[in-house]
Simulated assay, not measured.
Amino acid sequence: MIKVLLVDNEKIVIEGLCKLLEGFAEFSVVSLACDGPSALHQMRLHFPHIVLMGLGVPGMGGVGATRAIRRAFSHTRIVILTSKQQPVYMREAFQAGANAYLSRTIGASELRTALLTVHREGVALSPETAVHVLGLMSERPVAGGSPLSRLTERERQILFLVADDQETGHIARFLGISPKTVRNYLSRIYAKLGTPNRLQTVLYAKRFLGQPTGMPAEL
């Protein structure tokens, strides 16, 4: 059973999410919180696997609450659920340590799939979200002909972490896969980007992104 903490300042939203998630066999909603401080308190009481977080929560905001939770509970998955789909909000959320960024227009089955993916793989990046974040970091859009546009979702996840100077072992633990699997993915990334090794791939990614991707450093 995957334990979930719901954090949102809108009562109707949080109650609706609670009813929705409890209708799925995989999830157990362990608590609800309406602001950042109470979310941290509930974290200490229940140690949930996933936090489903709104951006508008008072008492430090969703980004601040995400950052505080990431700092104190490094292995907890944090999923942002918000109506704000502008790239700048995505960037702030990922820099704070979010594992996924979802729209409130998402359907029930899509939400279930995203949460299961985050729990299993450590991160969920849709192609649309990845393109927004990559484009924002580079201060230019990711063109369809760019080598980065040819990466799969998993390869983009690993590239984000590599560009953030994470070691293979850390990446493996964060994504819940073996170091050998990470190395296999890296080999495919090298081939697609035309880079001969990890160092050149890091340099390529940082040159394109303009700065570290901001994925959680505390793995």
Rank of each mutant, 00 (worst) to 15 (best):
R150M: 08
I189V: 12
L55E: 01
G54P: 13
G169W: 05
Y185I: 01
R188S: 14
L134A: 07
G16C: 06
L219N: 07
M43P: 11
G61P: 12
R91F: 02
Q86L: 04
T181Y: 13
L55A: 00
R44S: 10
E92R: 13
R91G: 02
A33W: 12
G36E: 15
T168Q: 12
I189R: 04
A100H: 01
L203W: 12
E26G: 05
G23A: 10
R71Q: 14
F208Y: 14
A130E: 10
S74E: 10
Y204N: 12
G122F: 03
E92C: 03
Q211Y: 11
L161A: 13
A163K: 02
E155C: 11
F160S: 05
D35A: 05
G210P: 04
D8E: 03
A108Q: 07
D8R: 00
Q86R: 11
A217P: 00
A39E: 08
E10Y: 08
L159Q: 05
M1Q: 02
A124G: 00
F27N: 01
D35P: 11
S28H: 10
L81D: 06
S28V: 03
L209W: 10
E167G: 14
H170I: 11
G16E: 10
P58W: 09
G122T: 07
L136M: 14
I50S: 04
N184A: 15
H46N: 12
A124S: 04
G107A: 06
E22C: 01
H132V: 00
P87F: 01
I12D: 14
G194K: 10
Y190R: 15
R156N: 06
F24M: 04
G107L: 04
V30Q: 07
R173P: 03
A72D: 11
A217Q: 04
M43F: 08
R140M: 00
I158T: 07
L199T: 10
N9V: 08
